[in-house]
């Protein structure tokens, strides 16, 4: 088997104009690299067409569908491992664009190892061993919930975990909960594609958040609902420093 050179220098030398921490944002078709380091170890790659740079977008909580376009928003990782044969983006958020048809592309591992699956830190605890309720004092607290572009789906092992945290806090703190849903209806153009979210998505996201809170035990009559378009971006750990993605969010404000 071919020896790999997982050094950042070597990798960066092979690829034009890559610098760590640089933010990248583009629309493209994904390529699946069939690496095998056990379950969920396949690699997802996508090329920024403007520059011809191909990136490893595997760490996104939402993985691509090989027949649909992707909106990629990320940052070139400080620590490169070359597990997938392209510079790694981390943090990275991928949104699947069902309207953008792609030809399925799968390439072999070509000696790249892929990454062993490790349970991400944002994972919901089982019912038999739940997280303890947060201790007092209870102050007003904001829980921003990120959403993928164009969707009201609570992203697995990311937004779902944040929704559970919001519900746990709201139940412990009591008081009221204000839910404000947002959508990015202002069109923006990336990689020659113009994207804009539909206006009713702000409401659907807010309703989805309410479904979670009430489903998880927050009294329905304590929850109020609002929705708006095109919020200012929000710098919050929920977005892992990818502040652009925060225009597609729900704010849950717990007010004890």
């Amino acid at each position: 088997m071919r020896r790999l050179i997982p050094s950042l220098l070597a990798l960066l030398a092979l690829t034009p104009a890559i610098s760590a921490a640089e933010a990248v944002r583009f629309v493209s078709c994904p390529v699946y690299r069939d690496t095998d380091a056990g379950r969920k170890s396949g690699c997802w790659l996508a090329e920024e067409r403007e520059t011809g740079r191909r990136f490893d977008i595997t760490p996104s909580a939402t993985k691509p569908d090989w027949s649909m376009g992707v909106l990629v928003e990320g940052r070139i990782a400080e620590k490169q491992d070359n597990a997938c044969g392209a510079p790694l983006l981390e943090p990275v958020r991928v949104s699947v664009l069902p309207e953008m048809a792609c030809t399925r592309a799968m390439i072999p591992a070509e000696g790249f190892p892929g990454r062993r699956f490790v349970l991400p830190p944002r994972n919901i605890r089982p019912l038999y061993a739940p997280d303890p309720a947060p201790p007092p004092p209870y102050t007003a607290k904001l829980f921003p919930i990120p959403f993928d572009f164009g969707r009201d789906f609570a992203v697995y092992q990311q937004s779902d975990w944040m929704l559970v945290n919001a519900a746990t806090y709201a139940k412990a703190a009591g008081g009221t909960v204000r839910i404000i849903g947002y959508a990015e209806t202002q069109p923006f153009t990336l990689s020659g594609q113009t994207l804009a979210e539909p206006a009713d998505l702000a409401r659907r996201r807010a309703e989805k958040a309410r479904l979670w809170l009430v489903g998880l035990g927050v009294p329905a009559d304590k929850v109020s609902l609002e929705w708006r378009e095109n919020p200012a971006p929000l710098a919050d750990p929920a977005f892992d420093g990818l502040t652009e993605t925060s225009r597609r969010r729900v704010d849950i404000r717990v007010e004890p």
């Binding site: 699946y32 069939d34 379950r39 396949g42 939402t62 691509p64 027949s67 799968m106 697995y156």
Partner: peptide, 17 residues
């Protein structure tokens, strides 16, 4: 499995997934 949850399509796994 492959939609709408973000495991990806395709996703490598076994019967136990």
């Amino acid at each position: 499995i492959n939609s709408p949850v973000g495991f990806g399509n395709p996703v490598r796994n076994s019967c136990v997934f």
